[in-house]
Write a protein that binds this DNA or RNA. Structure first.
Length: 274
DNA sequence: CTTCACGCCTGTCAGC
DNA sequence: TGCTGACAGGCGTGAA
């Protein structure tokens, strides 16, 4: 499901509601979603803990608790976190409930059940490989043109697969990669190190732009994605190529095409993207 | 080390 | 209507 703009939107919509709240009980319907520690330990450690702060790194959400533990959630394809009151209708695919001290509930729902939850002391977060090995995020101080240029110059893989690699750039997923490549007019199958200095500059700018726009629009709701209070995003209205197969390119009027690149459905304009 | 195919799960949708 | 196959926003693993 969600990429960095969606996860950031969830963080923003949840933070005010959960920060300062105490978790009074955890109900787990599908224990295998809890990757660490065991589900009973997960429940026991979380019970009576207060959420101090809700942070994000790439596509991970991090709930910092008052006992130095951190609840880490990765939504993968269809995970959802939703803050509900007793009157709110509960999501059909709810698997975990975090019951709060004000009577409200933070729920974790997931149709494909590919999401993952962890709970560990802050100093052990490095054990989560995807978190500790993550590359710089778009819009961050570390994501410089110099870093991007140097990184791409060492890569023999297709540019699409490089941009999807979280170790190299943190937070991009299939939608925003297709969009960034469309904005920068670069063919997704180009070998990363073959990009010219100018193309690298355009692409760097395009990556930052699609992520900033995605956040500004509250994320892209293509099917499952909802924010922390159940609302859809609106960035789907602004997409140039993703999900627009056989529709006209807004730049040249030619038809948007779809093919498989790096094992992922890929949308692009064969006329504009070289 | 880099790159890629595959598996994990379940739901939806197009086509027959 | 019912069935089948393709496809779905991610990532860890293992093989080449």
């Amino acid at each position: 499901m969600p990429e960095m703009p969606e996860v950031e939107t969830i963080r923003r919509t949840l933070a005010d509601k959960v920060e300062g709240r105490k978790i009074i009980r955890v109900d787990i319907g599908l224990p295998r979603l809890v990757k660490w520690p065991t589900a009973p330990e997960f429940q026991a450690i979380l019970t009576d803990r207060t959420i101090r702060n809700l942070a994000r790194r790439g596509k991970y959400l991090l709930f910092y608790l008052d006992n130095n533990f951190v609840l880490v959630v990765h939504l993968r394809m269809t995970g959802r976190l939703c803050y509900i009151t007793p009157e709110t209708k509960q999501d059909k695919f709810t698997h975990i409930l975090f019951n709060l001290d004000n009577g409200d509930t933070l729920l974790y729902a997931d149709t494909r059940t590919l999401g993952t939850l962890y709970l560990m002391p802050e100093e052990e977060l490095w054990r989560i490989a995807g978190l500790s090995s993550m590359g710089p995020e778009p819009l961050s101080a570390e994501f410089t043109v110099e870093y991007f240029t140097d990184m791409l110059s060492k890569r023999q893989a297709k540019i699409k697969s490089v941009l999807l690699n979280q170790k190299l750039v943190g937070g991009l997923g299939n939608i925003y990669v297709d969009e960034a490549l469309a904005i920068a007019c670069i063919d997704p199958e180009r070998i990363a190190k073959s990009l010219t200095t100018q193309e690298v500059r355009y692409l760097h700018q395009a990556v930052n732009q699609v992520i900033a726009d995605g956040i500004a629009h509250g994320g892209t709701t293509f099917r499952d994605y909802r924010d922390g209070v159940g609302q859809s995003g609106s960035h789907q209205r602004y997409l140039q190529v993703y999900g627009r197969t056989n529709e006209p390119c807004q730049r040249c009027g030619g038809l948007i095409a779809r093919k498989e690149v790096a094992g992922r459905g890929t949308h692009y304009c064969p006329n504009c993207q070289k």
